[in-house]
Design a protein around this nucleic acid. Structure first.
Lengths: 357, 357
DNA sequence: TCCCTGCGGGAAAGGGCTTTCTCTGCGGTA
DNA sequence: TACCGCAGAGAAAGCCCTTTCCCGCAGGGA
């Protein structure tokens, strides 16, 4: 690879001058020398060594991002938001997939720190795991101590800047909707129980049911991977254990799609025989048939805000932005089937007021 | 940020020794010194500066990847394959999204070269744009001249190693299937015409129709963005111009999903009134309703092979691996409707032999 | 006893770039 | 004419590591 001194030699100037021309430094350089340098660059196909540059320059410009999996639409949307702001400010993003492995998350924090990123964004649910949380916070604190900026998306544990989707209210909205439609036998297809996102959404859901004098026993919850296959499998287990279910809440849309697949395979009509609710409102939700009723989270906006937080001025106290969840009614949730109502021995409640927001 | 000399000073050793301990060098170091260094590392929360390391070390280990968009399932799958091999070999991947912007692709080649990647993989359709192709090849040649390895996925233009999905045969299979089902009025929802993927798939499709004595006039093709909304919109235009269509071939699955949305909105039953064929077989294809009949491409395998090519031994002559397309019959393609057959005034042909492969 | 060998450790030379500092030569002022 | 100031270029000092080279020392063989 050609180096800067190759260019300088070829142009008959010093490396200092060559550098100034190439970087458009503020120091003036004669047009003639400038021409010569530019010509040499072109001839040698010179590209500056980014590592040498980063080493020599003082200021750090890239931003590190740790997500569970960019190809998961949930994170793809968040990342879109992150990118938008980063690109506007001419920042490069380094994105790492942890695949929900806490150890890998820890490693990536180190890795990104080693790469001298100016800021770090952790997106995706935290874990109910004290040892891990402590370790992570130590690492983040060490990073912040050296001037690094940190923001998290959807994690309670970190004490600094955060963007929080209102998962609990989202769960609540889902529960209220289903109650309003008269459902009593509600099953839940949940993500891994170690994730705070799972427990938050579950808590909101449970609260809504409790308020309506219903309950959510553990036997009506199945935990599985937060993806399509996890949803399909959990739904199957749920149905096997409790064929009387009239509604299923999936704790994210991928799982909901898996749930729909299982229901279709078993010949259960949605929403006539059984209702399904998703969570997140990822783009595909409107394109499945029937279109998915779900709880929308402003995913892109979450990314935008987190990046703005981290690239903006530092605040004296941590800022926490809570973004609202919103119920999106489509076609997978309907009133509880008549036959079941009879069986259940109670009339369905009247539909409660609009639960949008 | 703590540096290696900070660690060395604290441990009372030379930077050389500290480096050896930290990197597990082959040179032996007394246990006592090792302990001291490790302790200092922990106390200072030391993380080596990756840029300094890359500068000091000679060998390059990261691999650069340029795709259109990782969050597009097509590329997500390919990337999964790339990652699998890279991770096995302890390589880091730098993934860049060009969003189908040729200039951005050119920039990213420079960027990745500047980051000293050991190899470069370009995935995604090439462009019918000679000026761009020449520029790109020049840049790649310059990179290869300095020892960089290059492989492309799905691009004809590059003269080196390549993994090529058999788009043309895929198009052919789609056409043959539809002919076999008796369709004559076939519309095409195509991606941007500047993409070679579009024209390749179209060419195969056209060949199949021609062989069956049918044709594919330009008026039955609509070009749009290669995504869901593009597919929805192109389908609408197609239907407006030609309401007699009995089948639609979408040139990728995202577009097919958009097509299904438009058809649903217009109350056209799939496949009873109109058939739909997709392309790629991305994971969601089996989860839409009706499940999408499509042409499968071995996406993950494409990634695996490209990465293997680029990390394996250099071949004296360019290697081109062509990966077969395969028809996957699901529920969106059916026989041409009876009423239309009558209108068309000709009996449907007998279904031709199995076209799988 | 002397020399050679080998081991553990440090000094120092890069690696490619940026940037400060220094130097030269010119135009302008007193 | 002498001096000052400044523009434009180069020299050189880092930035933070890795790794080669070298040195001192202890142990073993002759």
């Amino acid at each position: 690879m050609a180096t800067l001194s190759d260019v300088a030699r070829r142009a008959g100037v010093s490396p200092a001058t060559a550098s100034r021309v190439i970087n458009g430094s503020s120091k003036p350089v004669t047009d003639e020398l400038r021409e010569r340098v530019l010509a040499a660059v072109a001839e040698l196909q010179y590209v500056p060594n980014a590592h040498a540059q980063l080493l020599a320059r003082s200021h750090r410009s890239a931003v590190g991002v740790i997500v569970h999996d960019v190809s998961d639409p949930y994170f793809a949307e968040i990342t879109r938001g992150l990118q938008r702001v980063a690109t506007d400010q001419g920042r490069l993003l380094m994105i790492c997939n942890s695949y929900r492995d806490p150890d890998r998350e820890l490693e990536y924090v180190e890795l990104l720190r080693g790469h001298q990123v100016a800021a770090l964004i952790l997106a995706g649910s935290g874990y109910h795991d004290e040892a891990f949380t402590r370790q992570l916070n130590e690492k983040l604190a060490a990073y912040e101590a050296t001037g690094g900026r940190v923001a998290v998306i959807g994690r309670h544990e970190h004490s600094g800047d955060a963007v929080m989707p209102d998962n609990r209210t989202g769960g609540y909205l889902a529960g209220r909707e289903l109650c309003g439609l008269g459902h009593r036998a509600i099953g839940v297809v949940a993500g891994p129980r170690i994730l705070t996102t799972t427990t938050d959404r579950l808590a909101g859901l449970r609260q809504a049911l409790t308020e309506q004098g219903r309950e959510l026993p553990e036997r009506r919850i199945r935990y599985a991977e937060f993806d399509r296959d996890g949803g399909a499998e959990a739904t199957a287990r749920l149905l096997d254990a409790d064929p009387e279910l009239t509604a299923i809440v999936a704790l994210n849309d991928s799982m909901a799609i898996g749930a729909l697949a299982t229901l279709r395979a078993r010949g259960l009509a949605v929403p006539q025989q059984i209702s399904v609710l998703g969570f997140d409102d990822m783009p595909i939700a409107r394109d499945v048939t029937p279109a998915l009723t779900t709880v929308r989270l402003p995913l892109v906006d979450m990314g935008v805000r987190a990046m703005s937080l981290v690239l903006g001025v530092e605040a004296p106290t941590p800022r926490v932005e809570v973004l609202p969840a919103e119920l999106v009614r489509r076609d997978t949730a309907g009133p509880v089937p008549l036959s079941t109502r009879a069986t259940a021995g109670s009339a369905p409640r009247a539909r409660r007021g609009d639960s949008t927001s």
